[in-house]
């Protein structure tokens, strides 16, 4: 103890020196930006490297959670991208003349936009399944149209999906006419190319030419009159020889069909059909 006090007394100037130097450097670092910044950066470099190692370890231990979160997030984002892609498809699709015309005709009808989720082709017995059903207002016997024209008729309805009999089904029969003429026949398909069908029972005195437009006649309540079906490809005789058979190039590509609309106002179509038939029977003077 005595020695310690002696030591302190003997070297008191060294302690004073250290004290005053500390005071000086406190002043230096406190009041001089440059020296202060050097002090803080170099002092922090040590702290930062230790913190960095600690952070690395913690990050490594957390990787499992992070990974799980990322996977979940990734799934959510993928779903979002898919939804947005669909929305973009629908929004950014250039409308063709046929589409514009169909939209014009159908503007007064309530339309249910739908998407083809399944496109079965079993020889001549083809079906489409769309992602709109009873909940969205789809009922059996409603007409379905697409960008290329008539697609088919709703046959069975589930809560959220519906089965559509397309034109390319041999049970399908849709009343059609040549644009500008009132003679009508029934659009039928009996296998073969998905892009071709035929209209039978066109009277021989109807003047059908190759390239003329085939549209819905309005004689059924499913489609309003005037919706594009296809164009006459060839005019030939019916098997029975009594009438013409018009071979039709279909406007809709059934092997590549995505977005369709269900015509959801059957009564309106019915009324339109009635008016149309009344007009035919009582031509304006």
């Amino acid at each position: 103890m005595h020695n310690l006090l002696d030591f302190l007394r003997k070297y008191n100037y060294v302690f004073l020196f250290l004290l005053l130097e500390i005071a000086s450097f406190v002043l230096l670092f406190r009041f001089n930006n440059f020296q202060g910044s050097v002090w803080f950066t170099s002092a922090n470099a040590v702290v930062a490297s230790i913190n960095g190692v600690y952070g690395d370890v913690v990050a490594y231990l957390n990787l499992q959670t992070v990974n799980r979160d990322l996977t979940q997030r990734n799934i959510v984002l993928q779903q979002q991208v898919e939804q947005l892609r669909l929305a973009l498809d629908r929004a950014g699709h250039d409308s063709t003349y046929t589409e514009q015309r169909i939209a014009e005709i159908l503007s007064e009808y309530q339309m249910i936009p739908a998407r083809v989720v399944s496109n079965t082709s079993r020889g001549t017995n083809n079906y489409l399944v769309i992602d709109q059903g009873e909940k969205q207002g789809v009922r059996p016997e409603m007409g379905v149209v697409g960008g290329g024209g008539v697609v088919g008729i709703v046959y069975l309805v589930e809560a959220n999906h519906s089965l559509v009999i397309p034109v390319t089904n041999n049970k399908s029969s849709i009343s059609c006419r040549v644009r500008g003429q009132n003679y009508h026949g029934f659009l039928q398909w009996d296998g073969g190319s998905f892009r071709r069908a035929h209209v039978d029972d066109v009277p021989r005195y109807a003047e059908a030419k190759v390239g003329e437009v085939i549209e819905t006649s309005g004689y059924s309540s499913m489609f309003p009159p005037g919706i594009f079906v296809g164009r006459v490809r060839k005019v030939s005789n019916s098997p029975d020889g009594q009438s013409y058979r018009l071979e039709v190039s279909l406007g809709t590509d059934f092997s590549n069909i995505r977005d369709v609309s269900v015509i959801a106002t059957p009564h309106k179509a019915e009324l339109d059909s009635l008016y149309h038939r009344a007009d035919l029977n009582m031509p304006a003077e």
Binding site: Y13, V14, F17, L20, E21, A23, S24, F25, V26, L27, L28, F29, R30, F31, N32, Q35
Partner: peptide, 20 residues
């Protein structure tokens, strides 16, 4: 000196060490 030259700590630290 530091107070008058706006160099807080510089002259005091160096002159303190010189004094040692």
């Amino acid at each position: 000196i530091d107070v008058f030259t706006n160099t807080p700590g510089v002259a005091s630290a160096s002159l303190c060490a010189t004094g040692l």
